[in-house]
Design a binder for these strands. Structure first.
Lengths: 177, 177
DNA sequence: GTATGCATGTAATACGTTACATGATTGT
DNA sequence: ACAATCATGTAACGTATTACATGCATAC
C-alpha cells in the first residue's frame, strides 16, 4: 500500500510544498542543482509521485486566482499531509539511517529548518550528532580484520557526517545572532 | 540493455570481487554496517545482480579447490570486467556526480585505493576536490533568491564533501609515512 | 505562422524491495 | 535426529528511469 508509506521522493515533494504552493514543474528547478537531488528531475518520477500523494490526501490542487497562469497546476499540503510531514521530520534518528541514508537526514534537517525554524533545526542537528557519535564508537572489529582499507574508507565517509552537523550548527548560531 | 551499463550495485559488486574471490553471501557482511551500503543487503538484489554481471562476462564463477566448502559459489572478475571496473574508477569527476551522487564518488575512492593503492587514491581525491570547489564557486543565484534557507542547507551539504576529501588525503599521507 | 520554450503527461522497461522458500551444513 | 544457521534462490510488487508525446503560450 502506498497509503501510509510514501517513498523518499514523496517526502521531498511534501517538504517542498510545505514552503508554499508549487507545481510539479517547479521541483526540478528547485532541486536539480542542489546536492539534495538524489532522485531524477524527470517528469516521469515527479508527476506520478504527486498523484500518489494526492490519492493519499496529503496534498491537494489549488486553483490560482491569477488570470489563467498557463497550465501550471499548483499543489498545497493538506492538514493531514502536514502532520505526516512533521511525523517524518520528528522521527528519532536511528542507527540504520546514520549508516544507510545520511542524505535523508540532511533533507530532514533542511525541511525542519524551513518548517519550524532555526531552533528546531539546531535541536535536530544535535540529535543527529549524537547518533553518529554512537555509531562511531561501535567496535566494528570484524570489518577492521577483514579489510583494513575498506574500514578506513567507511570510517572517513561516516565521519564527514559529524563534521557537517557541527558546521551546520555553527552557521545557524551565527545566523541567529 | 544491461550489457553495457550495469547499475551502481553492479559496480559495487565488481569492486568487491576485485579484491579477491567472494560469494554473494559475503557482500552484506562486508557492507551492511558500512556507510557505503545504499543498496539493500537482501539476497533479492544481490543474486540477480551477480547473474547480470555473469551474463555480461564481467565476472565468472570459480570452483574452489577446497573439499566442497558448503554451497558457496565464489566469483572472480574477468579481464574484461576488470577493464570495465577501471574504466568506471578512472572516469573524470563530473559536475553532475558532485551534485547528485557524492556517495558514488566515495565508493570509487575506496575501490581505487584497493585496486591501485594510496597514490592513485590521493590523485582521485585531488580531482574530486577540484570538482567540488568548481561547483561551490558557481553563482547559484537563483537558489539564493528563491529560498535562502534551502541555499544554506544545500551549501552545507556539499561543503561536507570537500572537508571529507581533505581529511581523507591527510589520513592517506599519514599512512604512507 | 513557424519556432522555441513551458508544463504536463504516458508507456516500456528494469531494477530494488519485501517476503517467502529451499537445501546443505554444523552442532548437540 | 533435531534445531539453528548458512547460502542461494524465486515471485510479486512498486517505483525510478528513459524516452517519447502533447498542448499551450510567447516571440519574432
Amino acid at each position: 500500500m502506498a497509503q501510509d508509506s510514501p517513498t523518499r521522493l514523496g517526502f521531498v515533494l511534501l517538504g517542498i510544498l510545505g514552503g508554499g504552493p508549487r507545481s510539479g514543474y517547479d521541483v526540478p528547478t528547485l532541486f536539480s542543482s542542489t546536492p539534495m537531488a538524489h532522485f531524477s528531475d524527470s517528469p516521469g518520477s515527479i508527476y506520478p509521485a504527486l498523484r500518489r500523494l494526492e490519492r493519499c490526501g496529503w496534498i491537494r490542487p489549488v486553483q490560482s486566482r491569477q488570470p489563467q497562469p498557463s497550465k501550471r497546476r499548483l499543489f498545497t499540503v493538506t492538514p493531514q499531509g502536514l502532520s505526516k510531514l512533521k511525523l517524518w521530520l520528528r522521527q528519532p534518528v536511528r542507527r540504520a539511517e546514520v549508516i544507510h541514508s545520511l542524505e535523508e537526514l540532511q533533507l530532514r534537517y533542511v525541511f525542519t529548518y524551513e518548517l519550524s525554524g532555526a531552533v528546531a533545526a539546531v535541536r535536530f542537528l544535535a540529535e543527529m550528532e549524537r547518533a553518529i557519535q554512537a555509531y562511531l564508537q561501535e567496535p566494528r572489529s570484524f570489518l577492521a580484520s577483514v579489510r583494513p582499507q575498506m574500514h578506513l574508507g567507511g570510517r572517513l565517509a561516516i565521519e564527514q557526517g559529524i563534521r557537517w552537523t557541527r558546521r551546520a550548527r555553527n552557521e545557524l548560531r551565527k545566523e541567529e545572532a
